[in-house]
């Protein structure tokens, strides 16, 4: 474990908690892409199947359970508890355009042609594009509440910190996970446009982000 990965995991946790609390307290999921949240729940489900087969550390196990519980709880809030506030017409991204290529690629490019390994690879590729429905929804509605932009900021920052973690691990222990690194770079690039708007608009206290 290194400081970059720890900070990354904390940013990830903060992002997920920000979103959950926003929906829970405002009793509304307006402006939130349910599709992205379903994709994230799928990412955690396919990645954390080793929860019962391989023990790495208490931290690893606890965080996996926390991420799974919060991901499914958020999906529950959107599609069941506060479904009347869900903007399904704005959340119109065709997720099959993500799932099919990601599933195909995970069969083609993986470390081992074994069920758990292919599911892990699927989760890595899927995570890199899972935020697209949310970013698409924001471009469609032309705006995002500031709390939603803080959620996206921490979510984008988490994988950027993981890139630093991989540089650190490469130089200190020769660790190099090519699939995770390439996907992590792609994932972080998707946030660049958002980061620009976030720093130029939201942090200038203009409240919510309105797209040009």
């Amino acid at each position: 474990m290194n400081i970059f990965r720890l900070l990354g995991d904390m940013c990830h946790l903060v992002a997920i908690i920000i979103l959950f609390l926003k929906i829970w307290r405002s009793k509304s999921c307006a402006g939130i892409s349910g599709k992205s949240q379903v994709l994230f729940a799928l990412v955690f489900t396919t990645r954390y199947l080793d929860l019962f087969t391989s023990f790495i550390s208490v931290y690893n196990t606890v965080m996996k359970v926390v991420f799974l519980v919060l991901a499914y709880a958020t999906v529950y809030l959107i599609y069941l508890r506060f479904r009347s506030t869900y903007n399904s017409e704005s959340d119109s991204f065709r997720v099959e355009f993500l799932l099919v290529p990601v599933a195909g690629l995970s069969f083609l490019e993986n470390y081992a042609f074994a069920p758990l390994e292919i599911l892990w690879t699927f989760s890595i590729y899927l995570e890199s594009v899972a935020i697209l429905p949310q970013l698409f929804m924001i471009t469609k509605t032309g705006e995002a509440e500031s709390i939603t932009t803080h959620y996206l900021f921490f979510l984008g920052l988490y994988r950027a910190l993981y890139l630093a973690n991989w540089v650190w691990r490469y130089h200190t222990e020769g660790f190099f996970d090519q699939i995770a690194v390439v996907s992590g770079v792609v994932q972080t690039i998707f946030y660049c446009d958002f980061f620009y708007l976030y720093f130029t608009k939201v942090l200038r206290g203009s409240g919510k982000m309105t797209l040009p």
């Binding site: 990965r5 995991d9 990830h12 080793d50 790495i56 690893n60 965080m63 996996k64 991420f67 490019e109 993986n110 470390y111 081992a112 390994e117 892990w120 993981y162 973690n165 660790f175 190099f176 996970d177 090519q178 995770a180």
Partner: peptide, 10 residues
């Protein structure tokens, strides 16, 4: 494809 790192990250 490269070696199969033990997936010790979240």
């Amino acid at each position: 494809s490269s070696e199969n790192p033990r997936h010790d990250e979240l």
